[in-house]
Simulated scan of single mutants.
Amino acid sequence: MGVIERDKSLRLENVLSLRKKMTQQEVQQEMMKIGKFLQDNGIRKTGPVVTATFAVETDNEQPLMDMEILVPIDRKAELPEGYRLKEVFHLLHAVYARHEGNPNMLQNTYNEMLAYIQQNNLQQITAGYNVNIKEPKSAQELDDMVIDVYIGVNPSIL
């Protein structure tokens, strides 16, 4: 993992947003559906896909994640039911780190970031947002993945 930085921001415009409870398999299906919707409507992605997991519960032995998928797109569009358009997504005062390597090790990056937040008496106010900078095209490329992680913290000093 790289260096942890403070006071970073993440700003996206015209963002397709989907937030719902999903299994890992359903997340993959939703990503495919979003890709197909964009392709069918001539809409282009203007940046990397961002995901945030707000909670995880277990349902029938399978983790069920309360998750949001954010996809910046090149224009405002009429979206299918269940999707929202966020004209602006702006995360300020975030703690940031870059995770390079297998996403199975992402929890280690989170653990280091959360320890940093605690050691510096910061107050976490958002879920972690994962920005997929380099996505794998095959299972062999998983170890080459690059994910930027942002966690919003309270800018107030209390």
Rank of each mutant, 00 (worst) to 15 (best):
A55Y: 00
A139W: 15
V3T: 15
E61Y: 10
K86P: 01
L70I: 07
Q118I: 15
S138I: 07
A52K: 02
R75N: 01
Y129I: 13
L70V: 09
V131T: 15
Y110S: 01
V153G: 13
E81W: 02
G128N: 13
E81Q: 08
K8F: 03
K76N: 04
Q118R: 15
Q107I: 07
Q124A: 15
M145A: 14
E78L: 03
L12V: 11
V27C: 06
H90K: 12
I125D: 07
V3Y: 06
N130H: 15
L106Q: 05
T109F: 08
N120R: 12
N102K: 00
L10H: 11
D74N: 08
Q29D: 12
V50T: 12
E100A: 02
Q123A: 14
S9P: 06
R84F: 08
E5K: 14
E87G: 06
D144R: 10
T23G: 09
G47S: 06
G2C: 00
I69W: 01
F89E: 01
Q124H: 10
K20C: 06
T46M: 03
P48V: 04
M145E: 12
I133E: 15
N60E: 12
G82F: 04
A127Q: 12
A127V: 08
F37K: 02
I147D: 06
F89G: 01
P63R: 03
K45W: 05
M105D: 04
A94N: 08
K76A: 07
T46R: 01
E78K: 02
N104Y: 03
Y129L: 13
A97Q: 02
D66Y: 07
P80K: 05
V146S: 12
V153N: 12
H90P: 03
Q119A: 13
R6E: 13
L85S: 01
I73P: 01
N120D: 09
D66R: 05
G42D: 10
F89N: 01
Q119G: 10
K8G: 03
S9T: 13
L10P: 06
L64Y: 06
V3K: 11
A94Q: 08
M31D: 04
E135L: 10
A115F: 11
